[in-house]
Design a protein around this nucleic acid. Structure first.
Length: 260
DNA sequence: ATGCCTTGTCGCACAAGA
């Protein structure tokens, strides 16, 4: 079973590229972020014709997440628990069956947090604290689950081509990195780092200043896995070539495959 | 030091992104 995450930066602008990637990569589950669409306006027909069910949690103009799935989804839940006043659409999760056992998939778009010294950075850290509490609750069930998406965190210096350029950025603050580390310290595995310890493993390249051509990237899209899911981990990949397609997102897909 | 692009918006410039 192949499960992927991709920040597509607008589902309407990315419709054809998303369709081409789904046909090429053929994931069973695709977790999407920044759909920038309300639920009713999500252009799902072409994806449904490929065999995907579509579950969205959208809002107008910004943010928005979705799960496309070739297998049935149960208990679809929208919004990250822990703050009923949070109106930003950044989290959706659902349960599916993998080899006869439940697998919970959480699709997340973590707040960017810039600029520093504003309520936006506080919101990022509050959101990460809620995510840790949610991860703890999920772990207590001792079942397989994935928390995957755009974390907007550069975990370590080797996860940026030019880490010195990010020292004043919310993505690379000690508080952001510590909050991400709190998740891995719970026992959640960073799938890409289980498979690949190299430098220059990136998932995002800015649209500006020829970042893609210079390979001036960062690794901010992550797949975190519970121990029960890691037991079944079979493969990990980053579809970086998609960044070179016409009209690309600035992020690329990251995926894992689970064995029986 | 700043902008460099891209997307969506009750557009005709701007906010937000990272």
């Amino acid at each position: 079973m192949k499960i992927a995450t991709w920040n597509i930066n607008g589902v309407k602008a990315r419709h054809d590229v998303l369709l081409a990637w789904l046909e090429e990569a053929a994931p069973d589950i695709a977790c999407l972020q920044e759909i920038k669409s309300v639920d009713d306006a999500f252009p799902g027909t072409a994806f449904e014709e490929l065999g995907y069910r579509v579950e969205t949690h959208g809002q107008k103009g910004f943010n928005g997440v979705a799960i496309l799935s070739k297998v049935p989804l149960d208990d679809v839940s929208r919004g990250l628990p822990g703050d009923e006043t949070d109106t930003q659409a950044r989290y959706i999760e659902a349960t599916l069956a993998h080899e006869g056992r439940p697998l919970r998939v959480g699709c997340l778009y973590l707040p960017n947090g810039n600029p520093l010294g504003t309520e936006k950075f506080d919101y990022k850290l509050d959101w990460m604290a809620r995510l840790e509490r949610h991860a703890r609750a999920c772990l207590e069930r001792e079942e397989a689950f994935l928390l995957l998406g755009d974390y907007n965190v550069i975990p370590e210096p080797r996860d940026a081509r030019n880490p010195q350029n990010w020292t004043d950025d919310a993505l690379f603050q000690p508080e952001s990195r510590s909050a991400f580390r709190a998740l891995t310290n719970l026992g959640l595995a960073d799938a890409v780092r289980l498979a690949n310890q190299d430098e220059a493993v990136f998932t995002f390249w800015d649209y500006q200043a020829g970042a893609w051509q210079k390979n001036n990237g960062i690794r901010i899209d992550h797949v975190l896995m519970s121990p029960e899911a890691t037991d079944r981990l079979d493969g990990v990949g980053i579809d970086a070539h998609v960044r070179g397609w016409e009209k690309p997102s600035d992020h690329v897909p990251v995926w894992v495959t689970l064995a029986a």
